[in-house]
Structure formats: structure tokens, C-alpha cells
Write a protein that binds this DNA or RNA. Structure first.
Lengths: 247, 247
DNA sequence: TAGTGGTCTAGACCACTGA
DNA sequence: CAGTGGTCTAGACCACTAA
């Protein structure tokens, strides 16, 4: 076997301060230091590590990128709970998926309206632009922590009299509702996953600073007859999930 | 239809400086300002926007998180090319996938060795810890830009006399090599996708600062007989791909 | 060697959270 | 209200890239 060693240059500097702070924090976390999962204040930590808040923050941000820590806006830094295993090919049932992993789900309805499809939505659902759709915005939590902001767009043509459903029904599983009232089961699915910076609205809902990194998942769902019936635009807290797929 | 409006609080402040710089940069980029895709220096930009480098950098970092810009370490900021559509269920053929999207692929072999499986690798391949595996590290580029650092681990038991292959063979498609010399085709696949901060080595290879956000993809591949034959640990430049799946 | 980003200092004020 | 993170200033030195 030919050795193709040393093509990668050696490290350029000993160890950056940020790197060693990061390591120290990881060690502290591994020891389970913060009882309630909450870290000491940034100012306190920066003092402890004899550095600036900016530098300390850099280390925290990297741990956030790694999914080890997360923030709640102006509340503080917390140790991230284990990631939810999320299989986007298993449709519907956010609630069931969460419960199966011994966690407690919660869904909150934020907004619902009947509107005309934007060009993007029309393309996804394969309908005419301006065709009527229902838009539903929801926030979903795991163990009391907001992890997902989602906009559902339903092709109105597939869901006559959808207006009749109240807040309560729309805070529960849509999958269930489809089956019960429309005899619709999910069929094929298409989806895309991209890292993205959080726009204003999802950021507010997830209690995160706008522009923070997140995972954006866009799904289009067909029913058992192959019609594209709805699509979901999902913004996940980046540390909250691990996408797991078998094929 | 019940109106569940205004549950989301109004914006807390007018517009942050970072947000407006971000918008201004986006507008400039949309106009195609940087000829070669390269942005002016940070110091120059911070002067142009009458702000500090730190603040300016914050805006750049958010655009990076969004996949609009990317960095090369100590070289500068660049406008990100379109994302590669990456379907992890279509195995092998990085090269073909890239060419089909009218881009130019390149693979560089970094390192190859025969070693004992670590506990993680052993678990993935369903073999005994310390069982022999081949490890291959490669860097892959699109249109001359490094986008992927990957470690392949091959179950040695499935690939007798693998040592005979030289650098050249290992810089090409493994899929091809499997088929040609071992009569092995890919079968099932399992994979996981998580956002992650770049460790030292992949960062160096991708010419990015360590700790930068990236997309981590871990895949385990079976052959036509259902044996787990190899696994890939992939670190992608976060802006380089859009994961697209149909099921 | 000049110019770049990477890292770091030592502060400051503000908007918001929670008691 | 005190305390938190969010944002911002005005510098500095270093390691590296590219010419």
C-alpha cells in the first residue's frame, strides 16, 4: 500500500485560546457541572478563563455550532439535550415520533389563514400561482423547549371546508385529521435539507437571535393517489435533531 | 376559521446594524458586483459601512451561515456558487453526480492506511472492535473548490488484497473499483446528517478555520448481499450542498 | 513584502428576562 | 429592579497568502 502521508500541513499554531476554552468547557460539561443545564453568565465565564467576553463568546458559538450548547435569547446558555432522531421519510406524527423517543412533545398553533399561493408554494404543490391554499404556522417543542418552527401549506382543493377546524384541532396531528376527515393518507415525499440562517419570524418563535444557524427542511407530501397535497417549510434548532434515514 | 394572530411579539428593535449591512451586501451581490466572486477586504468593507471589523464580520458570518458567502482561510470572502444537489441514497459516483450537474469534480487522495477498527467504526460496520479495516482519506472539489473531506472505512474482510491498489486507483471512484475487482455493488444504505463544527483536520483540508460550521454526513453502505462493507464520514462545506431526497 | 483574515483586548450601552 | 445576553466601538498583534 502506498503511503500518501504528510500531504496535510501541520497545525499552524500551538492552540488558540478559543480552542482551549472550548475544551475546558467540554470537560466541565462532561462532569455534569451545571445542575439544571444552565451555564454561568458570559461575564463570569470570561473572568474564569481570564479573557474577554468576545473571545469567550467565540468558544460558546463553536460549541453551539456543534450542538453541544444552545442559547435562549437574553436568558443564557444551556447544555443541549440529546438530539431527536428525525426520519423525514416517516411522515406526520411529530408527536408520536417524539414520544417514541421518551420525550414530551408539544405543539402550539401560531397562525392560520387562507391565502393565494406564492410562486414558490405553487411550484412546490404543482398548482397555479395564486391558487388558494391554507397556511398554518406552528411551533413545536420537545420537553418544553421550542425546537421547530413550521409553516404548512395545504392545497385547498384537496381540503374542502377546512375552515371548520378550530385552534384545538390544528394544534394536533394534521396526519390524523387528514385521515379522519378526508380519507387522505400520506404517500410519496420529496424533501430538501439545507443549513440556513434563521429569518426574523422563526428566530422569534424559537427564542433565538435572528441570523443564528439552523437547519431548514422543505418537504412536499403526496397522498395515496399521488397528488401533492401539502408542503412544510421547517426551521429546526440546529442542535435539536439528527436526520436519520434508511434506504 | 379562527384567527390566532399576534401571538408572536413585534420586533424588539428597529433594525440592527448587522441586519442592514447584511441586506446591503446581499443587494451588492445580487447586482453581481464582485467580478471574480471575491469580496473586498474586511477592513475596506467595515470602512464602507462605517463600522468596526467585528460588526462587519458578524454580518459576513451570518451570510456564511446562510450559504451566500464562504471563506478561504486568510484568503478572503467569496460569493458561494450554487449548491450541489446531493442525494445520499444514490450511492457512489461523486464524480458522476457532479458532472451531471455540469460542474467539474476532482478527488485528491490524502492518506490511506490499514488499521484496527475503533469502537465507533466497529459498531457502524457491525464487526468486532480492533478488526482490520482500511481507512482512506480524500478531499473532493467542485470546480476547483474544496467542498468535502471524507474518511472511508472499508471492512478488510470484504476486500482481500486491497493493498495492491495505488494512489491513482484510490483517487478515482471506489464504486467502480468495488464492482470491477470484487463484484460488489452497493445495496442498502443508512445515513445520518447533523450540523457540526469542523474539527482540525477537515478544517485544514477544506481551507477553513477550525470550528466553522459544516454539515456532517455519516453513511454505512451494504452490498447486494446485505453485508455492511464500508462507511463514510463526510464533512461538507455547509454552503456547498443541498441534500435532496425522494422516498 | 504587503495585504489578508484570525485572534484578542478592554471596555460600552441597550433590550430584554425574571424576581 | 438587577442581571442577562445582544450589539457595538476602536483599536492591536499574529499567521498566513500571494506577488
Amino acid at each position: 500500500m502506498t503511503a500518501v502521508q504528510n500531504r496535510i500541513a501541520a497545525p499552524r499554531q500551538a492552540v488558540s485560546q478559543v480552542a482551549s476554552i472550548r475544551r475546558a468547557l467540554l470537560a466541565q460539561i462532561a462532569q455534569g457541572l451545571p445542575e439544571d443545564g444552565r451555564l454561568p453568565a458570559e461575564r463570569q465565564l470570561s473572568e474564569q478563563f481570564a479573557t474577554t467576553r468576545i473571545t469567550l463568546r467565540e468558544a460558546l458559538l463553536q460549541l453551539e455550532a456543534d450542538g453541544v450548547l444552545y442559547r435562549e435569547e437574553r436568558r443564557g446558555w444551556f447544555v443541549a439535550p440529546p438530539r431527536l432522531h428525525y426520519d423525514p421519510t416517516a411522515r406526520g406524527y411529530f408527536e408520536r415520533m417524539v414520544r417514541e423517543q421518551s420525550r414530551i412533545p408539544h405543539t402550539r398553533l401560531l397562525h392560520v389563514e387562507s391565502m393565494a399561493a406564492t410562486p414558490t408554494i405553487a411550484a412546490l404543490l404543482d398548482i397555479e400561482p395564486l391558487a388558494p391554499v391554507y397556511m398554518i404556522r406552528r411551533a413545536r417543542s420537545i420537553d418544553g423547549r421550542r425546537v421547530l418552527f413550521v409553516e404548512h401549506y395545504l392545497n385547498s382543493a384537496c381540503f374542502p371546508h377546512f375552515e371548520r377546524f378550530g385552534d384545538k384541532a390544528l394544534s394536533r396531528s394534521l396526519t390524523e385529521l387528514y385521515r379522519r376527515y378526508y380519507d387522505i393518507e400520506y404517500g410519496r415525499v420529496r424533501f430538501e435539507i439545507t443549513p440556513a440562517a434563521l429569518p426574523e419570524l422563526p428566530a422569534r418563535v424559537l427564542k433565538v437571535a435572528a441570523g443564528s444557524p439552523a437547519l431548514y427542511v422543505q418537504r412536499v407530501n403526496a397522498d395515496q393517489h399521488g397528488r401533492w397535497i401539502d408542503c412544510d417549510l421547517e426551521y429546526w434548532r440546529q442542535d435539536a435533531i439528527k436526520v436519520c434515514i434508511e434506504a
